[in-house]
Design a protein around this nucleic acid. Structure first.
Lengths: 258, 258
DNA sequence: CCGGTTTGTCGTCACTATGACGATATATAC
DNA sequence: GTATATATCGTCATAGTGACGACAAACCGG
């Protein structure tokens, strides 16, 4: 143990050491509205209060692994491996909060992740949480534990901004979907209405965005829609929409919060 | 000590505790080229190698405070307080790396920050670093310690993307500057040439971006330019450029790395 | 003093992308 | 069949861009 100090330099004693949590802003579109995943806390602090799913990072874990584990433990959602790739599901880091003044237990760092997912069956509770559920985020979803209201707002704004120029809107859709479903995603995330014809022109006319499957999706009333999938081999965060799909100025174009 | 467990819930024992560093990608524009601030390490690991300025977060410190302290200790640069506001200097969080496989001393979390600054006098070395210096980032600045090459690349890409739609390009400029200087920033950051007349039209014609001071800036050859400042009261990260200033497609439109 | 050079600013023009909206195709509901 | 709903294609005016001409106002060298 003493010789490791020579062969392997150590972290200086003055450096602080912090517990680290991973919290996930999981968003989906259900019934035309943007929903976030919250759980009810079973433990102190904030016992009984709603919070974002998340928990402490364990030794030997990566941050992504911790995010996936907590999500699965608390909500039953299993994030497919490689969800940072194209297709449904998208997991990306949001930002890091803390360590001061955000947890009554003391200094705690929170690395947060943003998950965009298709509407998914009701998750099951477990772990440190009871009753995981999707809650609509129309304006005032407030009342979350810790600084999770703030984190949720940041996550929503990130999602709103990213679908402007990236194909990430498709992360909310199943592997094959009609253009109208994608338009519904934009309308739900932005809280606005988009012209179906102009959206169709932009979505299908942008190289590297959508790819026709040739199949038709029937079922509902009206003419059956052609099904599309995300263009293959495209980085889901690449800026394929050039110029971007712009949110109507009439809608609440809130300034991104840094 | 025993009763605090009742009145103040504690972090569970199973939770890991991690040393946390703050590393800063400091960018500036000098002589028409984008430069990054690097220091030479005085201590192991990677002693003698170039690295981004940064160091361990101390107990009781916020992340921003740690970033400012390390920057000042190692490079002599003093970030003005409130550099997240408008005007020259801009400090924002980039992302968090780790904790596994990036530091030979063991699991270490690195919260990184992006600093955009006007060209500034040669920084002075100190602390754990010798010879802080600006290095041009034209393509192959590589060879930094830890995963700092990767972090630097992420920071540059963030800067390239942000000046497309935000007024952040002005963070590289002094408080008052001619339009041509701002154009030089865009050209340096994007590594491309822009048409002076079209840039002037877009920059001066976009509400919430530039504000004429009425003063003229003389000195060099040619007609003296009108001096502008950033529009007052505008969030420096707000998307004021709608549609954005788009990088020419001819230039290397690399896909953002998530 | 005077023309040449350099840089900043204003204008023009073709083209692209958008926003608004009409028209047609093809399904389900009654 | 008729009404209704949805998808897709087309048209047209307009805003914004890219390319580039023209003029303004400083410096330089003789």
């Amino acid at each position: 143990m003493a010789d490791t100090a020579r062969t392997r330099p150590a972290v200086p004693d003055t450096a602080g050491s912090f517990p680290v949590t991973v919290d996930v802003v999981a968003l989906t579109v259900r019934e035309g509205a943007l929903h976030a995943l919250v759980v009810d806390r079973l433990l102190e602090p904030f016992r009984g209060q709603a919070a974002l799913p998340g928990g402490f990072v364990l030794p030997g874990e990566t941050l992504e692994q911790a995010a996936g584990r907590e999500l699965e433990e608390e909500t039953g959602l299993t994030v497919p491996t490689g969800a940072t790739g194209a297709g449904p599901w998208h997991l990306e880091q949001l930002r890091t909060y803390g360590p001061l003044g955000r947890d009554p237990r003391g200094p705690v760092l929170s690395v947060t992740y943003l998950l965009l997912a298709p509407a998914f069956g009701l998750p099951a509770a477990g772990g440190d949480a009871a009753e995981a559920r999707w809650v609509p985020v129309d304006g005032n979803a407030g009342g979350l534990a810790f600084d999770h209201d703030h984190i949720l707002a940041d996550g929503i704004e990130r999602a709103r901004a990213k679908i402007e120029y990236s194909p990430l809107g498709a992360a909310f859709c199943p592997p094959e979907f009609p253009v109208a479903e994608l338009r519904g995603v934009y309308e739900a995330v932005w809280g606005t209405r988009l012209d179906a014809r102009n959206f169709h022109r932009k979505a299908t006319g942008t190289p590297g965005f959508l790819e026709p499957t040739g199949r038709l999706g029937g079922g509902g009333p009206g003419r059956p829609a052609e099904l599309y999938r995300l263009a293959a081999g495209v980085d889901p965060t690449a800026a394929v929409l050039h110029p971007p799909l712009m949110r109507p100025v009439s809608s609440g174009r809130a300034a991104p919060s840094a």
